[in-house]
């Protein structure tokens, strides 16, 4: 029983990282229906930006007290901003021209951008995995015999907090309104005086900034990062977004947590080599019975 809860805690923390990546994925998908394969690489880029900022701040290990909040805050904001800008650039250079070219052309450019980003990171920080400073105190809280680290708590809080913030942002701000209008009907939105280009660019900014945030979190959590990480993580996060119902923020978070938990339990009970098979089998079965994901609504296809 003890191991069950230990695995659950681990799965939830892992799922929190997937959830953070999936939130950005789902936002971008929601507005232009593009499977942005480069999103996973923006996430990795976020961990490298964080590494650079931490280096500039002189952080090479554990930070305690109020300085922790300052250092982490500066790093997160910096990495998120930089990733957001990268996101805007990617949209402007690689996707905007293809907005009316069907769905496959942007899919292929997304793959191209993903390759380019991976190569840039490989040249920038080398082809080997790079160590990331253990910023957070390694204290482990004992909750009924199950160890929970501060970082695990932080990951989960961040994931849920971000989701709630985004929900508020999308439903209660002018920009959120513009986003939803653009997603629903671009022409009508233009007629309502919404600047489509700006709205889409801003969505990319927010989505990519979230990827940057996730990059910092995973770097701190695993104390390591690698230019090739984004591929696998992006695939899982996309799976999470679809499992929850793509375009749906709460769904992306739910999907992320579920996939983290499924992975943990599959590794525990079936062995690590079956964890990906289990995740994708559950994905397929879920979609067979709920064709729009867990929280998605079945809507008639747009014409």
């Amino acid at each position: 029983m003890h191991e069950f809860f230990a695995q659950l805690v681990n799965g939830i923390a892992l799922g929190g990282i997937y959830a953070l990546i999936a939130l950005g994925y789902t936002m971008v998908y929601g507005i232009i229906e593009l499977i942005n394969f480069a999103h996973g690489d923006v996430y990795t880029l976020g961990s490298f930006f964080s590494l650079t900022i931490l280096g500039a701040l002189g952080v090479s290990g554990e930070v305690r007290g109020p300085l922790l909040i300052v250092d982490v805050g500066v790093t997160i904001i910096g990495a998120a901003m930089l990733c957001g800008i990268v996101g805007i650039l990617i949209e402007r250079l690689a996707y905007r021209r293809l907005r009316f070219a069907g769905r496959l052309a942007p899919l292929i450019t997304a793959i191209g951008v993903s390759f380019i980003l991976e190569n840039v990171m490989q040249v920038w920080r080398g082809p080997s995995p790079v160590a990331f400073p253990a910023v957070f105190p390694t204290h482990i809280y004992n909750v009924g015999g199950v160890g929970i680290s501060l970082l695990q708590l932080a990951v989960v809080t961040l994931a849920i907090g971000t989701m709630l913030l985004l929900e508020f942002f999308v439903h209660h701000t002018r920009f959120g309104q513009a986003m939803r209008a653009t997603a629903q009907d671009r022409e009508a939105a233009t007629l309502m005086g919404i600047d489509i280009n700006r709205t889409i660019a801003l969505t990319f900014f927010v989505g990519s900034a979230l990827a940057g945030l996730a990059g910092f979190v995973s770097g701190a959590y695993y104390q390591s990062t690698w230019f090739f990480n984004g591929f696998g993580a992006g695939l899982k996060a996309f799976t999470a977004a679809v499992l929850g119902g793509i375009g749906n923020l709460a769904g992306a978070m739910l999907g992320g947590f579920l996939i983290g938990i499924i992975e943990s339990f599959a590794t525990w009970k079936l062995g690590g080599q079956w964890s990906n098979v289990t995740v994708f089998t559950i994905l397929v079965l879920t979609l067979v019975f709920r064709p729009a994901g867990l929280l998605g609504e079945v809507t008639p296809e747009k014409v």
Binding site: I35, T239, F280, L283, V284, L287, V288
Partner: peptide, 22 residues
């Protein structure tokens, strides 16, 4: 997968593509 549309179909085929080699 026949009930699925658009990108949901894509992700299910992607899932199969991950499962088979594994």
């Amino acid at each position: 997968t026949l009930r699925l549309r658009g990108d949901y179909l894509a992700i299910v085929t992607l899932g199969f593509g991950e499962i088979v080699p594994q």
